[in-house]
Deep mutational scan, measured.
Amino acid sequence: RLTVMSLQESGLKVNQPASFAIRLNGAKGKIDAKVHSPSGAVEECHVSELEPDKYAVRFIPHENGVHTIDVKFNGSHVVGSPFKVRVGEP
């Protein structure tokens, strides 16, 4: 089962990169992540390998409000996905 680490749920800033990590815990497959902005825009997140069992997911929010992040592994949502994060002040 995958572990999502260091996902900041609030206090993110517009046009500043945000990232979190995913540990695969021995699982093999493909991570896919997309961020949905409050206006409905959908953007791919950048996924990069940090070490053999750990990946970083990076995105840049372009507007204030609550964004939804879909994180999928081999086509299925990971536990807790979709995640909600707040950009800007509430």
Results as ranks from 00 to 15, higher is better:
residue 56 A to V: 13
residue 30 K to Y: 15
residue 1 R to E: 15
residue 88 G to S: 05
residue 24 L to G: 04
residue 14 V to L: 12
residue 66 V to S: 11
residue 78 V to A: 12
residue 71 V to R: 00
residue 4 V to F: 14
residue 16 Q to S: 08
residue 16 Q to T: 15
residue 22 I to D: 00
residue 84 K to I: 06
residue 75 G to W: 07
residue 20 F to P: 00
residue 89 E to S: 12
residue 10 S to F: 08
residue 2 L to V: 12
residue 50 L to N: 13
residue 85 V to I: 14
residue 64 N to M: 12
residue 78 V to P: 08
residue 48 S to L: 09
residue 74 N to K: 04
residue 36 H to M: 08
residue 50 L to A: 11
residue 11 G to Q: 06
residue 22 I to C: 13
residue 55 Y to W: 11
residue 18 A to F: 03
residue 28 K to E: 05
residue 16 Q to M: 05
residue 70 D to A: 06
residue 26 G to A: 05
residue 14 V to T: 05
residue 42 V to H: 04
residue 1 R to S: 03
residue 21 A to W: 09
residue 74 N to S: 11
residue 80 G to F: 02
residue 36 H to F: 14
residue 14 V to F: 01
residue 79 V to W: 03
residue 78 V to E: 04
residue 32 D to L: 06
residue 34 K to Q: 13
residue 67 H to I: 09
residue 84 K to L: 11
residue 14 V to N: 03
residue 17 P to V: 10
residue 5 M to V: 14
residue 80 G to T: 03
residue 74 N to C: 09
residue 46 H to V: 09
residue 83 F to G: 09
residue 47 V to A: 12
residue 74 N to F: 09
residue 11 G to K: 12
residue 34 K to R: 09
residue 50 L to I: 11
residue 12 L to T: 00
residue 48 S to T: 08
residue 52 P to R: 13
residue 77 H to A: 11
residue 13 K to Y: 08
residue 85 V to A: 10
residue 51 E to C: 13
residue 41 A to M: 04
residue 61 P to S: 01
residue 30 K to Q: 13
residue 73 F to N: 12
residue 26 G to D: 06
residue 29 G to C: 01
residue 31 I to Y: 02
residue 38 P to S: 08
residue 68 T to D: 09
residue 6 S to Y: 15
residue 62 H to P: 14
residue 84 K to C: 10
residue 73 F to Q: 03
residue 33 A to D: 00
residue 72 K to I: 11
residue 62 H to G: 13
residue 52 P to Y: 14
residue 88 G to E: 08
residue 58 R to Y: 13
residue 37 S to K: 01
residue 8 Q to K: 13
residue 89 E to C: 09
residue 2 L to S: 07
residue 26 G to N: 08
residue 54 K to E: 14
residue 44 E to D: 14
residue 8 Q to W: 13
residue 86 R to D: 14
residue 22 I to V: 05
residue 83 F to D: 02
residue 11 G to R: 04
residue 7 L to I: 08
residue 48 S to I: 12
residue 79 V to P: 11
residue 23 R to G: 06
residue 56 A to G: 15
residue 59 F to I: 10
residue 4 V to G: 08
residue 51 E to I: 13
residue 12 L to V: 03
residue 18 A to H: 05
residue 57 V to R: 00
residue 43 E to F: 15
residue 11 G to F: 04
residue 33 A to W: 06
residue 59 F to S: 01
residue 6 S to T: 15
residue 60 I to K: 08
residue 11 G to D: 11
residue 44 E to T: 08
residue 7 L to G: 04
residue 65 G to E: 05
residue 60 I to V: 12
residue 19 S to K: 13
residue 7 L to H: 06
residue 62 H to V: 11
residue 64 N to Y: 07
residue 25 N to W: 02
residue 75 G to S: 12
residue 16 Q to I: 05
residue 63 E to F: 04
residue 61 P to A: 02
residue 38 P to A: 01
residue 85 V to H: 09
residue 87 V to P: 02
residue 56 A to M: 09
residue 77 H to L: 13
residue 30 K to R: 12
residue 89 E to T: 07
residue 9 E to A: 03
residue 37 S to P: 05
residue 76 S to L: 08
residue 39 S to M: 14
residue 88 G to V: 02
residue 63 E to W: 09
residue 82 P to V: 03
residue 27 A to M: 14
residue 30 K to F: 07
residue 80 G to L: 02
residue 31 I to P: 06
residue 28 K to D: 09
residue 77 H to V: 12
residue 71 V to P: 00
residue 9 E to V: 02
residue 59 F to L: 04
residue 43 E to Q: 03
residue 47 V to I: 10
residue 10 S to L: 04
residue 31 I to C: 11
residue 18 A to R: 01
residue 44 E to W: 05
residue 12 L to Q: 03
residue 70 D to N: 09
residue 77 H to P: 07
residue 41 A to K: 12
residue 2 L to N: 15
residue 56 A to C: 12
residue 24 L to S: 04
residue 15 N to E: 08
residue 75 G to Q: 09
residue 29 G to S: 04
residue 5 M to H: 05
residue 65 G to N: 07
residue 65 G to Y: 01
residue 51 E to M: 06
residue 7 L to N: 03
residue 3 T to R: 15
residue 66 V to D: 14
residue 53 D to L: 03
residue 75 G to L: 10
residue 39 S to N: 15
residue 34 K to Y: 03
residue 6 S to V: 07
residue 53 D to V: 06
residue 4 V to D: 10
residue 2 L to R: 02
residue 54 K to Y: 11
residue 34 K to F: 06
residue 15 N to I: 00
residue 72 K to M: 09
residue 63 E to S: 10
residue 72 K to A: 11
residue 2 L to M: 06
residue 81 S to R: 01
residue 86 R to T: 14
residue 74 N to Y: 08
residue 84 K to F: 06
residue 69 I to E: 00
residue 43 E to D: 03
residue 63 E to H: 12
residue 1 R to V: 15
residue 45 C to F: 02
residue 58 R to C: 13
residue 24 L to V: 06
residue 71 V to S: 01
residue 23 R to K: 15
residue 35 V to N: 08
residue 61 P to W: 00
residue 69 I to C: 05
residue 75 G to T: 14
residue 61 P to Q: 00
residue 10 S to V: 04
residue 63 E to Y: 09
residue 69 I to R: 00
residue 79 V to G: 11
residue 89 E to D: 12
residue 5 M to Y: 15
residue 6 S to E: 15
residue 58 R to N: 15
residue 60 I to H: 05
residue 18 A to G: 06
residue 64 N to Q: 14
residue 31 I to W: 03
residue 17 P to F: 04
residue 65 G to R: 01
residue 48 S to W: 10
residue 4 V to H: 07
residue 25 N to E: 02
residue 61 P to V: 02
residue 72 K to L: 13
residue 62 H to Y: 09
residue 64 N to V: 13
residue 62 H to Q: 08
residue 8 Q to I: 07
residue 53 D to G: 08
residue 33 A to C: 15
residue 73 F to D: 06
residue 63 E to A: 10
residue 1 R to H: 02
residue 33 A to Y: 03
residue 15 N to Q: 03
residue 26 G to S: 06
residue 8 Q to P: 12
residue 54 K to H: 04
residue 89 E to L: 11
residue 8 Q to N: 08
residue 17 P to A: 05
residue 75 G to D: 07
residue 36 H to G: 15
residue 82 P to H: 03
residue 27 A to G: 10
residue 74 N to D: 13
residue 19 S to Y: 01
residue 4 V to M: 06
residue 67 H to P: 00
residue 56 A to N: 14
residue 8 Q to S: 10
residue 38 P to K: 02
residue 78 V to I: 12
residue 49 E to W: 09
residue 77 H to E: 13
residue 20 F to E: 00
residue 18 A to L: 14
residue 87 V to I: 07
residue 74 N to W: 05
residue 57 V to S: 08
residue 25 N to Q: 04
residue 30 K to D: 14
residue 18 A to I: 06
residue 21 A to K: 15
residue 82 P to E: 02
residue 7 L to V: 05
residue 79 V to T: 13
residue 84 K to N: 10
residue 63 E to V: 12
residue 68 T to R: 11
residue 71 V to W: 02
residue 85 V to E: 10
residue 41 A to W: 03
residue 80 G to A: 11
residue 67 H to K: 00
residue 72 K to N: 11
residue 21 A to E: 09
residue 13 K to G: 04
residue 1 R to A: 01
residue 67 H to W: 11
residue 77 H to R: 08
residue 3 T to Y: 11
residue 44 E to L: 04
residue 19 S to D: 05
residue 32 D to W: 05
residue 13 K to I: 15
residue 49 E to A: 13
residue 57 V to N: 01
residue 66 V to P: 10
residue 51 E to K: 05
residue 26 G to F: 05
residue 23 R to V: 14
residue 29 G to K: 02
residue 32 D to C: 14
residue 31 I to A: 03
residue 2 L to D: 08
residue 76 S to M: 13
residue 8 Q to T: 13
residue 89 E to I: 11
residue 25 N to F: 08
residue 10 S to A: 10
residue 71 V to T: 12
residue 37 S to C: 06
residue 63 E to K: 10
residue 39 S to Y: 07
residue 55 Y to T: 12
residue 62 H to K: 13
residue 40 G to D: 09
residue 76 S to I: 13
residue 81 S to E: 11
residue 14 V to P: 08
residue 33 A to M: 11
residue 22 I to L: 05
residue 85 V to D: 00
residue 83 F to L: 15
residue 85 V to N: 09
residue 24 L to Y: 01
residue 36 H to I: 14
residue 73 F to L: 03
residue 64 N to A: 12
residue 48 S to A: 10
residue 69 I to Q: 00
residue 9 E to R: 04
residue 61 P to F: 01
residue 37 S to Y: 06
residue 26 G to V: 03
residue 84 K to H: 09
residue 76 S to V: 07
residue 15 N to T: 02
residue 57 V to H: 03
residue 2 L to W: 00
residue 74 N to H: 06
residue 72 K to R: 08
residue 9 E to D: 12
